[in-house]
Design a protein around this nucleic acid. Structure first.
Lengths: 100, 100
DNA sequence: CGAACTGTTCGTCAACTTACGAACAGTCGT
DNA sequence: ACGACTGTTCGTAAGTTGACGAACAGTTCG
């Protein structure tokens, strides 16, 4: 029950933007952009596990990330291709802006 | 008491993204991008005046728009220069994506 | 098997968001 | 001065968000 990732065509700009409009999620996206596919636990900050699970869901539902189980871990990765296809240049400019 | 617009340097990516992460505000931004500076009332949809006032505030506080009084109207305009300076390419890709 | 580990689910909670109408405050034209 | 007009302020209300801990579920390894 990894939950439903939206199809590429179902990804909505407003959902992506509001998903990214949160400092913690922005950091997560940044980490995924830098580090490629990685497990949930790696990006652990000072927030609780259940809080992170909530943010994975927001990012997943909005179409920003893929989440797939692997052993006892859950691997996360950016849906770069899909985001670039739907909203060319958006992810790049967001990532560039966080790179400051 | 037109309220405080943030300085260019104070504009935060997360605030801009969450401001844009709303369908109504996205339409407003789109209208401003197309039509240049215009009065609040022009973009009136099916929403009430007080609701719009709320959205002007969100857009203003996040640094997405300028709002200035002119006679009995209140003129709105996109802070294109500031947004481009802070987050190059972001506004363009968002606008391009809404242009679909 | 059983302990350790990773992450989810559930219930809860405070804070924020989005929306509305009614009343108000300037401004413009007459 | 008066009415029409534009937008704000205020109070209210329903819904969403972001956070947490406790309990659970699946996987791995001794």
């Amino acid at each position: 029950m990894i939950a439903q990732h939206p199809e590429r065509e179902q990804i909505l700009l407003e959902n992506v933007l509001s998903a990214l409009g949160n400092p913690l999620r922005l950091r997560i996206v940044r980490a995924l952009a830098d580090g490629g596919e990685q497990s949930c636990g790696v990006i652990l900050d000072d927030v609780s596990k259940s809080t992170l699970t909530h943010h994975w869901k927001v990012l997943r539902d909005s179409g920003v990330i893929w989440q797939r189980p692997s052993g006892r871990e859950n691997l996360l990765s950016l849906r770069r291709d899909d985001l670039d296809a739907r909203f060319p240049g958006l992810l790049a400019s967001v990532l560039a802006a966080t790179r400051a």
